[in-house]
Amino acid sequence: MTGLRPDLRIIADNIAAGSRVLDVGCGDGALMAALRDSRQVRARGLELDPANVSAAVTRGLSVIQGDADTDLVDYPSDSVDYAILSQTLQTARAPHKVLEELLRIGRQAFVSFPNFAHWRIRMSLLTHGRMPVTRLIPEAWYETPNIHHVTIDDFRELIALRGWTCDGEWFLSGDQQTSRGMANLLAEHAVFLLRR
């Protein structure tokens, strides 16, 4: 699993061999290919960008060009073991609805996102009074695809509000796993494993 983005490596390490997976926002299929090759996972993908879809299909993966906001309704309920949404939640027009769809389609759902409450972002906003541009949020406000910034505590609140179960939490800082303590302040990135 080397070469995978750190959040994807966490997801890959926690997926049961031989399971069925839907990777929503699968990019060029890096995670799907790793899961297929090392864990015999039956992976499907959904991806918005046609160039990424082409790259994934060229890898021999089954990927459909589509939009998480509108096209997840096409997938039958309970059709995969895991639905995965990595670094895509904050780009959705209706993130809560996308999460509901993920938990309908998959028995469990992995969700990873950059934490907007990380201390460096807080500092940046506090000291400069400008929208932060960081390693994980690299685009300026007017061109970023991230239209729904979210913090770890916001996400936990949504989980509680919707009555979902959290089966796992992982936090990353500087590509290294970091502790749960003060994650909302210290983690750059979070990965959650949810269940209905």
């Binding site: 082409s54 089954s62 459909i64």
Partner: peptide
């Protein structure tokens, strides 16, 4: 593609 998904088929589309 919608129908193939509903049928659980291995499908790609671009």
């Amino acid at each position: 593609v919608h129908a193939l998904n509903a049928a659980g088929a291995e499908a790609s589309f671009v």
